[in-house]
Write a protein that binds this DNA or RNA. Sequence first.
RNA 1: CGGGGUAUAGCGCAGCCUGGUAGCGCGGCAGUUUUGGGUACUGCAGGUCGCAGGUUCAAAUCCUGCUGCCCCGACCA
Length: 440
Amino acid sequence: MRLSRFFLPILRETPKEAEIASHRLMLRAGMIRQEAAGIYSFLPLGFRVLQKVCQIVREEQNRSGAIELLMPTIQSADLWRESGRYDAYGKEMLRIKDRHDRDMLYGPTNEEMITAIFRSYVRSYKDLPLNLYHIQWKFRDEVRPRFGLMRGREFLMKDAYSFDLDFEGAKHAYNRMFVAYLRTFARMGLRSIPMVAESGPIGGNLSHEFIILADTGESEVFCHSDYLGFDVPGPDVDFGNVATLQKIVDQWTSLYAATSDKHDEAAYAALSGDKRLSARGIEVGHIFYFGTKYSTPMKALVAGPDGVERPVHMGSYGIGPSRLVGAIIEAFHDEVGIKWPQPVAPFQVIILNLKQGGSDTDAACEQLYAALTAKGIDTLYHDLDERPGAKFATADLIGIPWQILVGPRSLAEGKIELKRRSDGLRELLSPTDALIRLSA
RNA sequence: CGGGGUAUAGCGCAGCCUGGUAGCGCGGCAGUUUUGGGUACUGCAGGUCGCAGGUUCAAAUCCUGCUGCCCCGACCA
């Protein structure tokens, strides 16, 4: 992509409403635009990151055996009357009426709808286990939205719903998501720590929040520092193997880890001093087992091998991709801008032509741009007529992992400069060597 | 939902106290200049001063009401 043909509205000054780093940087980098309190447009750069995040989430959901579908944002109130939540949910739910004066709502979550889908088609234990998920916009009319994408009213959520015949099956479904979540966040460069959680208004009694540590996190968390060193399961983990998954989950739940809501001062104090980790955290995922909370009132029944019908055991599993975009920035930035982990970066490489209009630099940039593009590497070519300093500032701000600096000084020796955004490491290389390096 | 702020050009702000028909920086456009860390200069464009009422010869400025947005707290992916 040539910057001259892209839409990247960089802000030189920070809008006053942005307090935390991710919000400030997303606005400045032209990733998002606020439309109302807690409601944002994703501009092209931000949308690219959001799509990268969704794709990783999707791949790991699929790997674990979950199946993607897509439910609507607007739901009928009748569905929620069945579960009793239409009255219980409160003002967080955006309630609307259609032209026939029917009660509708903008979905804050989809337990009711997925249960209705399930009961329409599934009658037998032979169709289980089943895990259905979608990635769809949610609306929760938060009293006080804040921190940009971290706490929006409209937000993108991956929500998965598992269906099993009994608790044992549901436990394995829970473990599958547990392991998938560890992998999902790790692939984005994040170390997530599962913490014992309140089950909240969704209900249930087996629940973990996946927290990543960041100074600007909303919650105060306490955990054993060994969590930082645990191995994350590899891509070859056998999601069908009950014992294997249980072993992984047992390890990742063996040590103390809790948010301030569930904090047990005594248990924490019992840890040896050098293992105590007290920090701020951001909740990026939340998983629940809630048994038959919805299947019973909504009559989602399946026949077991004995022919007896019983309510299906369910769990729900959420990840907030739009929040993750903010969370990743909280974890990876410095004073001048974002430092995207490679897997979620909107572009892999940015070429900075330090003398736009110079025949040598232009030619070298065009060649690099063509070669990188041919190799399938997402490349942004900064081809605007700007001062080198402005280009450096832009590149650092938007945080593309690799910068290729093409200027007359190094080009005289047949070299370009390759700069890594994460640590500022610079190397003088021939364009050919740079290509090899970036293709690796 | 309680408490506190704020609203003037795309962004950041001054002007309001003491009423007289709107200004600065950045950004944008045209040009000159410069070419390895946001260069300098010239010119130009851009504003229903959040909305509605009121007071006044005259309102960005004073009064009343409303709304949006932000921050702190209680609540959530």
